[in-house]
Simulated scan of single mutants.
Amino acid sequence: MHKPAPAGFFMHARQESANATFHKIAHYDKGKKELTVLHTTELVPIAITVGLSFLSGVGVFLMGIREERIKGGFLDFFTEVSIAITAGLMAYYIGRHQQFDESIIYFSVLLSSNNGNEVIHIAKRLNSEAIGKVLTQLFSKGGK
């Protein structure tokens, strides 16, 4: 019979597959007698992406203050960093989907997060156009 791990026990296992490396992080809570497991394929690259995007967002924020484009309050800082992280993650997932080299993906992350407002605006426009096409096709076929 398997003996439960002591309270606060952390386990990290790594499994290689054809497409990705899977990480399994587990924590055993003795009080609740349950094991919580987190499965992820890209923990470190996502952390790098968020870190690069955060730094880029801080840079955009500071440049905005310097150019007197923004006031420099907490809300402005949070907005710039949030937009940068969102744009950076979009670039990361698109790059992974297209199976680009890791250096090209991180370059795209920096470029996208530095131009976060434009990237988000383009994504919104493309999304709206795609939804419009689907609705047009749906209604032109009479809902069939």
Rank of each mutant, 00 (worst) to 15 (best):
M1G: 09
H2T: 14
A5K: 06
A5R: 08
A7T: 12
A7F: 12
G8S: 02
A13Y: 11
R14A: 14
A18W: 10
A20C: 14
H23C: 06
A26W: 03
H27T: 04
H27S: 03
D29E: 05
L35N: 00
T36P: 04
T40V: 02
T40W: 01
T40C: 01
E42F: 02
L43A: 09
L43M: 06
P45M: 06
P45G: 03
A47R: 09
A47I: 08
T49W: 02
T49L: 02
L55V: 12
V58Q: 00
V60A: 02
F61L: 05
G64E: 03
G64W: 00
R66H: 08
R66D: 10
E67N: 08
E68N: 03
E68S: 08
K71G: 08
G72F: 02
F77P: 00
F77V: 00
T79D: 07
E80G: 08
V81S: 03
I83A: 07
I83V: 10
I85K: 01
T86M: 08
G88H: 01
I94Y: 06
I94F: 09
H97F: 12
H97R: 13
Q99N: 14
F100P: 14
F100L: 15
E102I: 14
Y106F: 06
S108F: 09
V109E: 05
S112H: 06
S112F: 05
S112G: 10
N114M: 14
N114I: 15
V119W: 08
I120F: 03
A123N: 10
L126R: 12
N127E: 12
S128G: 13
E129S: 14
A130H: 10
I131T: 10
I131Y: 07
V134Y: 13
L135V: 12
Q137W: 14
